[in-house]
Design a protein around this nucleic acid. Structure first.
Length: 439
RNA sequence: UCCUCGGUAGCUCAAUGGUAGAGCAUUCGGCUGUUAACCGAAGGGUUGUAGGUUCGAAUCCUACCCGAGGAGCCA
């Protein structure tokens, strides 16, 4: 047992480190989440962002003034506690703090979020405080782990981070879903994808990716949609559709593995059924669009060949598997202008969407990009887009055009799936949604 | 934009045409091991807004506002 020598400051530790300090006098700094008392014994549950811990004080353990202060402490008041870390099998973390002193940094009157349940509207209005809930903290930790995993994986695979611009001069894929903003005397739009810029960067650096926000002015109001969301977009020169599908598969297996390994505590706190994540091992099914349509027909679903899949169709397909699935070779008509045509069927294109299991829907969209200047020019016309806006993009086909492929993976949808969230609104600290811009 | 559901105390909800209630939160009191502690007491209401029907409306009707889920579109 180590005791802090007299004359030295009590070491400030974080709650997550507490089990390593059993028998030591330490200082904890945090916020009170619950207070219970039994007349002559008081219990304060403290959180400090790294975890929660119960602190105990008998009436003789602390000064009468501190005892009074402790008795009057309110939820979310900020405190500094000093005392001894003790092993206690009754506690979730196995330890508690035997309080020896309490200092109130800041008292919090009438904290709006109580330990009882609240409605969605109320919680969203108090999102800035809701983040303090242990479940929300765990989700944000898992989010950070996923983003680290994405970047570590891409770096390991030899891809270089290149940041794409947020202000863009015009529509990449039509203006209806773009946010318009003032750019001095001109107009600019908030980026809905960094892909075209990544194609340019890939021609410079071979393998690149960007990771940043995307903005879509879609009037979508479902549990899968945010107006502002984060996306990672790798772009890979000389790669084919099959190359990029294999990369996506490896990325997802790596990311799920990292979360299972590094964020096991958080998965437990949010009560995620991890047995479903354990099954996320390759290979994932690759299903040709034509076969997917047949599967829907066999399931008795009226679906017209040539259309894009709706959410119920995607759910029907992905529910047949425990792992994510790839749907490949969509009709060119339902995909963006830059998709490379399928050499086996000119009506289809070399595209691929990845659908997450458990009904979470599309988490990745990607494919092989068009490399022919002539064909790209005609597709831009066919989509009614102005050639002038794409002259720089067409330069990529004029000067050393090569087959290349890439994809975009949505951070929030990937997190919603891995964490088993009911709604993407919990997958980002401050969600921007239709009709909700504050806090 | 369309479809469906909802709006009652600070919060979560009950009251289905006849005196607006409960739990939690708050305040006060009790309790030496509590785990969303427990026990007792108190305060707390223009039932989303505006009309209408009725002897009487939280409840029925109309319009509007706000929220939620879904469709379309997308990651």
């Amino acid at each position: 047992m180590s005791v802090t020598p007299p004359g030295t400051a009590t070491p400030w530790i974080r709650i997550v480190e507490a089990p390593k300090h059993v028998g030591e006098i330490v200082e904890l700094r945090g916020w009170v989440t619950h207070r219970r008392s039994s007349g002559k014994v008081q219990f304060l549950v403290l959180r400090d962002g790294s975890g929660t811990l119960q602190a105990v004080a008998g009436v003789k353990d602390i000064s009468p003034e501190q005892w009074e202060a402790s008795a009057a402490i309110t939820q979310e008041s900020a405190v500094i506690l000093r005392g001894m870390i003790k092993a206690d099998t009754r506690q979730a973390g196995g330890v508690e703090l035997g309080m020896q002193s309490l200092e109130v940094v800041s008292a919090a009157p009438d904290y709006p979020i109580t330990p009882k349940e609240h409605g969605v509207d109320y919680l969203m209005d108090h999102r800035h405080l809701w983040l303090r809930a242990s479940r929300q903290q765990s989700i944000l930790r898992i989010r950070a782990e996923i983003i680290s995993a994405f970047r570590d994986f891409m770096n390991q695979e030899g891809f270089l981070l290149v940041d794409a611009p947020i202000f863009t001069p015009s529509a990449c894929e039509g203006t209806s879903n773009l946010f318009e903003t003032q750019y001095f005397d001109d107009k600019a739009y908030l980026s809905q994808s960094g892909q075209l810029y990544m194609e340019a960067a890939a021609m410079a650096l071979g393998r690149v990716y960007c990771l940043g926000p995307a903005f879509r002015a879609e009037k979508s109001k479902t549990r899968r949609h945010l107006i502002e969301f984060w996306m990672m977009e790798p772009e890979w020169a000389f790669a084919t559709l099959q190359d990029v599908i294999a990369l996506e598969e490896k990325l997802l297996i790596y990311t799920v593995g990292r979360v299972l390994e590094q964020r096991a505590e958080d998965l437990k706190i949010i009560e995620r059924d991890t047995s479903k994540l354990q099954k996320v091992l390759g290979p994932f099914p690759r299903i040709h669009y034509d076969d997917a349509v047949k599967m829907l027909h066999e399931a008795g679903i009226a679906f017209e060949h040539g259309n894009d899949f709706g959410s119920p169709d995607e759910t029907e397909l992905s529910n047949r598997y425990d792992t994510p699935i790839f749907i490949t070779n969509y009709p060119a008509a339902v995909k963006a202008f830059y998709m490379e045509p399928d050499p086996n069927d000119p009506k289809l294109c070399l595209s691929c969407d990845c659908l997450a299991p458990e009904g979470y829907g599309e988490i990745i969209g990607g494919g092989q990009r068009m490399s022919s200047l002539e064909m790209l020019t005609s597709r831009i016309d066919a989509h009614g887009l102005p050639q002038s806006a794409f002259e720089w993009y067409k330069d990529l086909r004029r000067y050393g055009s090569v087959p290349h492929s890439g994809f975009g993976i949505g951070v929030e949808r990937t997190l919603a799936w891995i964490a088993g969230l009911d709604h993407v609104r919990e997958s980002i600290a401050f969600p921007r949604m239709l009709y909700r811009l504050t806090p």
